Computed example of a mutant assay.
Amino acid sequence: MEPVYITAESTVRPKEIEVGVTTVYLRRNIVETQHTDPMDEGREPTPVFIYEEAQLTKDEALLVLAEGQETHTKELEDADGINIDHEYRLTLLELGLSETDI
């Protein structure tokens, strides 16, 4: 399941994950900008946070977060495999061997 994100803004920095009574809010790409109202001459600009937000039920959020965990686990396993292969090749080089010598 892919959550549907909409653009939102707030004057308070939002949490990336916020759990309400029945709704879970997932937020990403949080960027702080400055907002200046033309009617407020001479006043300091107001910080505004613009971000993407998805609103999910708790069950939907658990499903999305579990799918994300599976993806990260697979990526870590791939990286581990690459690191092991890299270490193996470095060891062969240090020993002055090649794969054909083994």
Rank of each mutant, 00 (worst) to 15 (best):
L56A: 03
A79F: 10
I102S: 11
N83Y: 11
I82L: 05
E18Q: 09
E94P: 01
E9K: 12
F49P: 00
I50R: 12
G96V: 02
R28P: 00
E32D: 02
H35S: 13
N83T: 12
L90N: 13
F49L: 09
Y51S: 03
Y5D: 00
F49Q: 04
E94M: 11
T36W: 09
S98G: 10
T36Q: 09
E9A: 04
L65I: 10
G20M: 02
E44F: 03
M39E: 14
E52T: 07
E53R: 07
Y25V: 14
T11G: 03
P47Q: 14
L93C: 06
V31A: 01
E87T: 11
L56Q: 12
A8T: 02
E70G: 08
Y5I: 00
D101T: 10
A54P: 00
E41D: 13
F49R: 03
P3T: 08
N29V: 09
L62H: 09
E94T: 11
E67T: 04
T100A: 15
V48S: 05
T33L: 07
P38H: 09
V21L: 07
P38D: 09
Y25E: 11
P38A: 10
A66V: 13
Y5E: 00
S98D: 08
T11N: 07
A61H: 00
G81T: 03
L97D: 08
T22D: 10
R89M: 08
E9Y: 07
E60K: 08
P14T: 01
I102R: 15
S10C: 03
V64Q: 02
I82K: 10
L56E: 02
H72N: 12
E87A: 15
D80G: 05
E94I: 09
T46H: 04
Q69R: 09
G96P: 00
Y5P: 00
P3A: 08
K74S: 10
I17K: 10
R43N: 07
V19M: 11
H72P: 03
V24A: 02
I50Q: 08
N29P: 00
Y25P: 02
E67Q: 15
Q69P: 04
M39L: 13
T33Y: 12
K58D: 08
T71N: 10
D101F: 06
V12N: 01
V24R: 00
R28Y: 02
T36V: 07
A8R: 01
L90S: 10
G68P: 05
Y25G: 04
N29A: 13
R28I: 01
L76T: 14
A8W: 00
E94D: 15
F49Y: 15
E70P: 06
A61I: 02
A61F: 01
E18L: 10
E9W: 05
E75D: 12
P45C: 08
K74Q: 12
Y88K: 05
E67F: 09
L76W: 06
H72T: 14
T22R: 09
T100V: 15
A54L: 05
A66R: 11
Q69L: 15
A79R: 15
N83A: 14
L92G: 01
